[in-house]
C-alpha cells in the first residue's frame, strides 16, 4: 500500500517538493463566527517529525485536526486554504473524509482505548477496512511497532482499559499504526503521562518516523527539542480584538531554538511570554 503511494507521489512531484507528504496552508479557520487560526503554512516532510508549539489556546490542536478533517465533527467549522495530501486537496468536495482518516491516523491527548480487549482495540481499524489477512500477525506487528508487545503478549484478551496510562497511549498508537497509515497526527500524546512513560513514547516516535510521517502538538518545549526535526511556533494575535492563532515562525528545530528569527519566538522559548 505505502510503496504504491510513494511512487505515485514522486511521479507527481519533483525536486525538493518530492518529500512533502502534506502541504497545509490554513488561511483562515473559523468555528462559527470565531476566527481561531490564520496564516499557518507548513509542509510536512516524509519520515520526519514536525512539532507545533505555542501557548494553550493558540490553535495548535485546531491546525492539527485540519490535517485529517477531524474538525469536520465540529458544527460551524470552516476552513479557507488547502491541505494537499498526495497531490490532492483533502478538502476537495469529492474527497471522502473517512478515507482521508484511514491514511492519516491520529493519537489523542487523553489515551482513549475502547472498552474491549487489547487485541480487539488493535484489530478495530483493520476490521473497519475489511481486512481479510492474518489478523493475529498484524495485531502483533502493530503492538511490536508501538513497543507494547512484550508487556501485553500474555494478556491480549484483557481489557484495554486495564492497562496503565502510558500503556494505554501506546495501545492507541498501535491501534493507529495497525492500518499502516502514512501520516500519524499526535495531539499532546504525553500530556496525561508521567515522565518515564513520556520518554518511552518519545523514543517510540523517533522509531516510528522511519516508517511514518509524524506531526505532533506539544506544549512541552523540551519535548519538541528532543524529538522534532522541524518546529512551528504558533502564537495568539489579539490585535483585531479576537484571539486568533497564527504561525510566527517555522524552521528546523535546532535553528528555531538556538537562533530564532522572530523576537516573539525568542521570548517564548526563554519563558518570557505565554
Amino acid at each position: 500500500m505505502s510503496t504504491a503511494t510513494q511512487s505515485e507521489t514522486s511521479a507527481g512531484e519533483t525536486g525538493a517538493q518530492q518529500d512533502v507528504v502534506i502541504d497545509a496552508k490554513i488561511d483562515e479557520l473559523h468555528y462559527g463566527k470565531f476566527k481561531a487560526v490564520r496564516d499557518v503554512h507548513i509542509p510536512f516532510t516524509r519520515n520526519s517529525i514536525t512539532a507545533f508549539i505555542g501557548p494553550s489556546g493558540c490553535g495548535k490542536s485546531s491546525a492539527l485536526r485540519c490535517l485529517n478533517r477531524m474538525n469536520d465533527l465540529v458544527r460551524g467549522f470552516r476552513l479557507s486554504g488547502h491541505v494537499h495530501f498526495r497531490g490532492t486537496d483533502i478538502y476537495d468536495p469529492k474527497v471522502d473524509p473517512v478515507a482521508v482518516r484511514r491514511h492519516i491516523g491520529m493519537v489523542f491527548q487523553q489515551p482513549n482505548p475502547f472498552a474491549m480487549s487489547i487485541y480487539n482495540n488493535v484489530a478495530f481499524g483493520l476490521r473497519l477496512n475489511g481486512f481479510r489477512g492474518n489478523m493475529g500477525e498484524h495485531v502483533e506487528r502493530a503492538l511490536r511497532h508501538a513497543a507494547l508487545w512484550d508487556e501485553v503478549k500474555d494478556k491480549l484478551r484483557a481489557s484495554g482499559l486495564s492497562l496503565s496510562g502510558g500503556q494505554q497511549q501506546r495501545l492507541c498508537i498501535a491501534r493507529a499504526v495497525a492500518t499502516e497509515p502514512e501520516v500519524l497526527l499526535m495531539d499532546e500524546p504525553c500530556s496525561a503521562l508521567d515522565p518515564i512513560a513520556t520518554l518511552k513514547i518519545e523514543e517510540l516516535m523517533r522509531h516510528l518516523k522511519e516508517s511514518y510521517t509524524i506531526a505532533i502538538v506539544t506544549h512541552n518545549l523540551q519535548q519538541a527539542k528532543r524529538v522534532a526535526d522541524k518546529t512551528g511556533f504558533l502564537y495568539v494575535d489579539t490585535s483585531e480584538g479576537g484571539r486568533t492563532g497564527y504561525l510566527v515562525e517555522y524552521g528546523h528545530t535546532d535553528q528555531l531554538f538556538t537562533d530564532p528569527r522572530e523576537e516573539f519566538t525568542k521570548q517564548y522559548i526563554h519563558g518570557d511570554v505565554g
Binding site: 477531524m70 482518516r101 491516523g105 487523553q110 482505548p113 481499524g125 477496512n129
Partner: peptide
Amino acid sequence: RLREGAIGLG
C-alpha cells in the same frame, strides 16, 4: 474521546 478515537481510525 471514544467517538473521536473511532472517527480518527476511519
